[in-house]
């Protein structure tokens, strides 16, 4: 695993905390370093002490990919746990509320972990339909660790629940011809139902343009049913905009 370094995260968080939040976090990091068991009590309390707003003050609060203050603080606490993280991580996730689970998932890329510990947590998160948890699961750890079939299912899951694809770092390099074809079939299904298609599927589809599926979508332009024709026009003009 290309392990990420926590220092930039610590600097960004420090700049956003007030004196009380900074003091609490310093004490909490010290405490978990010296007493692994303290994490069970400290981890759920993070949001109450450092806040729950966006880490990047300019971020859109509705952006499910944007890190929050408590996400960053939880990552720093798990890094501080050191070797203890492997034992505590599954418990913190198992007993965690939504914010705690998100914190565990965000931290994965910053920890030294066996795949047997980290990957099952990502797999569980991708079975949920909570957009915040799915987005947190689709970080650099999942992009590196999941096999092709799992990445394909995860990307489809994102499209279905509304997690934007364009902000998932490293995704373009993981797109297989099968994933391009799967998403094109998804577009065809939506167009045939006269429904809209998110524009960010097109870079994934056009990574390996699937001839048969694209021809089927284009054939919808000649459909006698108006809704289907219009949906095909909208989808294909989004594709053209993406290519332009």
């Amino acid at each position: 695993m290309t392990q990420l370094q926590e220092r930039p995260l610590a600097i960004a968080l420090d700049a956003r905390l007030d004196a009380a939040g900074r003091a609490w976090l310093a004490a909490a990091r010290y405490e978990v370093t010296n007493d692994e068991d303290a994490i069970a009590r400290i981890f759920p309390a993070v949001g109450r002490h450092v806040g729950r707003g966006p880490l990047d003050a300019t971020a859109d609060r509705a952006d499910v990919h944007a890190w929050t203050l408590d996400d960053a603080a939880r990552t720093l606490l798990l890094v501080a746990l050191g070797d203890g993280a492997a034992k505590e991580l599954p418990l913190l996730y198992r007993h965690g509320d939504g914010a705690e689970r998100r914190g565990v998932l965000r931290a994965l890329a910053y920890l030294t972990l066996d795949d047997a510990v980290g990957v099952p947590l990502v797999e569980d998160a991708l079975r949920t339909n909570d957009v915040r948890i799915v987005a947190a699961a689709m970080g650099p750890y999942a992009i590196e660790k999941l096999d092709d079939a799992a990445i394909e299912q995860a990307v489809l899951k994102c499209v279905f629940v509304g997690v934007p694809l364009d902000a998932i770092e490293g995704l373009p390099e993981r797109v297989t011809p099968e994933l391009s074809a799967m998403l094109a079939r998804f577009v065809h299904e939506r167009v045939a139902a006269g429904r809209t298609v998110p524009a960010d599927v097109w870079p994934v589809i056009d990574r390996h343009p699937p001839t048969t599926e694209l021809a089927e979508i284009e054939a919808e332009l000649d459909q006698p049913v108006t809704e289907r024709r219009l949906a095909a026009q909208a989808a294909l003009s989004a594709r053209a905009a993406n290519q332009g």
């Binding site: 609060r61 509705a62 079975r127 949920t128 339909n129 909570d130 957009v131 499209v159 279905f160 629940v161 509304g162 998804f186 299904e189 939506r190 429904r195």
Partner: peptide, 22 residues
């Protein structure tokens, strides 16, 4: 923020039929 009626939790949507899903 305000309740997001299109959100789902762990595979379940409360407001069935109101969601934009395939």
């Amino acid at each position: 923020g305000p309740a997001d009626p299109s959100a789902t939790f762990a595979g379940n949507s409360v407001l069935r039929g109101a969601r934009e899903e395939g």
